[in-house]
């Protein structure tokens, strides 16, 4: 198969890396080659985070180049706009509509663009915004936003839903199993 390029963006602390892990493990469990790469270190809390997952028969570079992503998953609207140029023409975008102020905005040094959603719609005809935080809270934990996001994109991935569900189950612990599976289902229904 052609390489399927995924970019996952968000804010440090939102669980971007866990979502990436779910997708990468699911690809491996499906017998595909996969490379996953994120840059972390300085991004503790509040910084912009970007992660790449590439799935295919054989994957070389761990890096997705701008203009080549089949799917962009963004945990925050402004971050969706920041990385929207990674999408290839016709690429799919799923984003969480709940915004988080960058420190520059919080300090009054910059303004959060009020028309983010309009700008997203103008730049991408295949975009879907979801209320991931309330879906996650309904599932039992606001921190399960990442599993909600994975749930929503399941149908867009070259991976079977059962495989992803099984991987989420294996990677979760204790009460998290139920919460994450509910979040996954809630995201899928969004």
């Amino acid at each position: 198969m052609q390489i399927f390029n995924i970019v996952i963006a968000g804010v440090g602390g939102q669980g971007v890396l866990m979502a990436s892990k779910v997708l990468a493990e699911s690809a491996l469990a499906s017998g595909m080659d996969v490379k996953q790469n994120e840059v972390h270190g300085m991004a503790q809390r509040g910084g912009s985070v970007i992660s790449f997952v590439r799935i295919g028969d054989q994957v070389n570079s761990p890096v997705v180049m701008p203009g080549t992503a089949d799917l962009l998953i963004s945990f925050e609207p402004l971050e969706a706009l920041r990385y929207i140029h990674y999408l290839k023409p016709g690429g799919r975008l799923v984003y969480n509509k709940v915004s988080i102020n960058p420190s520059t905005v919080a300090a009054g040094l910059a303004v959060y663009p009020q028309d983010v959603e309009q700008q997203i719609a103008a730049a991408c005809t295949n975009a879907q915004g979801i209320e991931a935080l309330s879906i996650a809270r309904e599932a039992g934990n606001g921190k399960a936003v990442n599993m909600v996001m994975v749930g929503t994109v399941m149908k867009d991935l070259p991976l079977k839903e059962e495989v992803i569900t099984e991987v989420v189950k294996q990677l979760s612990q204790g009460k998290g199993v139920e919460v994450n599976l509910k979040a996954l289902a809630g995201g899928a229904a969004a």
Binding site: G47, L78, I84, P102, S103, T104
Partner: peptide, 15 residues
């Protein structure tokens, strides 16, 4: 393709 210009930066920050 180039990134959208003029967006507020999101640098890392004290938690």
């Amino acid at each position: 393709p180039s990134p959208v210009a003029g967006l507020p930066q999101r640098p890392p920050v004290f938690c």
